[in-house]
Design a protein around this nucleic acid. Structure first.
Lengths: 125, 125
DNA sequence: GCCCTCTATAGACAGTTGTCGATACAGGCG
DNA sequence: CGCCTGTATCGACAACTGTCTATAGAGGGC
């Protein structure tokens, strides 16, 4: 389950992402301050229960897209608060959005998730 | 704080961790609130540049162990501040420590890192 | 025992973050 | 056009976080 086999752009991005993150382990050599600040911002975006659930809700959705109205109704929080969390995730590069008519749809950026996953994987030496 | 004796225990834990993370994708189905809160705490621990560099410094070290004194000297921060960050990482389960005489040595918990990596990996199906 | 070094804890304080209500903007529909 | 719905931004405020100094605890050497 998860992403359908349909020829959408998301699958292509996912493959490209997982191939690109070859040597990016956090633990293979000490990272410099600039990289640390850069990566910390992304982890910080993931470091909130609401945002984690947002990512999960978006990613688990068939078709990979979720309307903001569906996300807002899934939480016991105000609409501006959800909008704020979506903005944080968007600025971290983890999701992106597209407006279609009245509604705005969000989807994951698989390459960004894979990049972080690659950083955390420990070479089994 | 406690690390079990022999160094090859770590390898066993690492392998077990990477094998166990089969179906733990964040995006395969929506996670519940409790899991989200739990996981967010770990991502939050990683969401600070200093702590990311600490993880990197510890993981990149030959032997996998680093004395606190080496970590403190790697930053332009006070010793209590580094101690605080190490505590955050320890409480998130990402690192572990052992006192040997006067010094305290920190090492990674590979299973914890692999767990988070597994969560972020996007199933390419 | 006394003292010295290494590490952790406590308390304080400024900066950041999550949340809200109010409001502005965007776009479809009479 | 005016209105209505969906989304984003603004401003405020309490709660949390990162940092410091001061101090406590652990353990070795004299």
């Amino acid at each position: 389950m998860s992403i359908q086999g349909a020829p959408n752009d998301l699958a292509v991005i996912a493959v490209a992402g997982s191939e690109a993150c070859a040597q990016q382990a956090l633990v293979s050599e000490p990272i410099d301050e600039a990289s640390a600040a850069d990566l910390a911002q992304v982890f910080k975006a993931l470091g909130d229960p609401v945002r984690l659930r947002l990512v999960s809700l978006i990613g688990a959705r068939e078709g990979g897209e979720v309307c903001v109205c569906d996300l807002t109704s899934a939480f016991d929080l105000s609409q501006p608060t959800i909008s704020h969390h979506l903005k944080v995730l968007r600025e971290a590069g983890l999701i992106d959005s597209e407006r279609r008519g009245t509604w705005v749809y969000y989807r994951l950026v698989p390459a960004a998730l894979e990049r972080m996953a690659g950083l955390l994987s420990v070479p089994v030496s």
